[in-house]
Amino acid sequence: MNVARGTWLVFHRQISQIIRSPIWIFLSILDPLVYLFLFAPLLQRALNAPTSGAAYTTFVPGLLVLLAIFGGMFAGFNMLVELRAGMIERARVTPMSTVALLLGRSLKDVANLLFQGGIVTLTAMLFGLTVRLPELLLGFLLVGMIALGMSALSNGAALKLKTEGILSPLINTVGHPLLMLSGILLPLALAPVWLQNVANLNVFSWVVRGMRELFAGHPEAPVVWQSFAVLTVLTTLSVYWASRQFARSIR
């Protein structure tokens, strides 16, 4: 069976499963709004932004990256549930391609993220965020790639580790430094030089800067294409690695 058709089949199944859970929908709308309303006012003061619109222009791009990182990272927990329910085994004894099994699942996380991101962006616009459509679409493409890569990594890790007991600390250990060193919640301008140097090694700090340039209306800034280039490589590698985890024996 070809990969595209298999991916669509898995994607469709995953989406139809989540939309049956009203609590899940409620939470996935609430979660980004909580960040928006709690952090943005704080940031306006911290950044000395003249208006709330200016604060949102700085904060919303970062928030979208944060949602993509964390939304993707937690994908592995759903994979563990499916492993235990025998869903993965069931699919592995059919001619389905492992790439389709992974992509269908990770694209569900991308769809979820775009939905959340859309709500955040529209809400922020009501409060003064301004961004042009082409730049917004490019920005969504960037965060979509992050979500895809992170979700693939998390799914792959879940298949390898097979237990929440290791997956949760792993996500915390990787997630928190990534978040802190990306300048999403606190501007890295406040950091000492050595910390800024470390942060420069963090792909997500480039991507956050790239996103901010896009929202500020500078798509020509070099950090934008650099973000796309580095994410293309990382996402491709992640998807490849995670698909291979499916092909390995599933105990």
Partner: peptide
């Protein structure tokens, strides 16, 4: 055909959906 030990139906799916999906996974 393989029927695993614990079974493999999802709580929130119906029998009909599971069967259709299974058939479609075979192309």
């Amino acid at each position: 055909g393989y029927v695993s030990q614990g079974g493999c139906t999802a709580d929130n799916s119906t029998a009909r959906e599971e069967l259709v999906l299974q058939a479609r996974m075979f192309g």
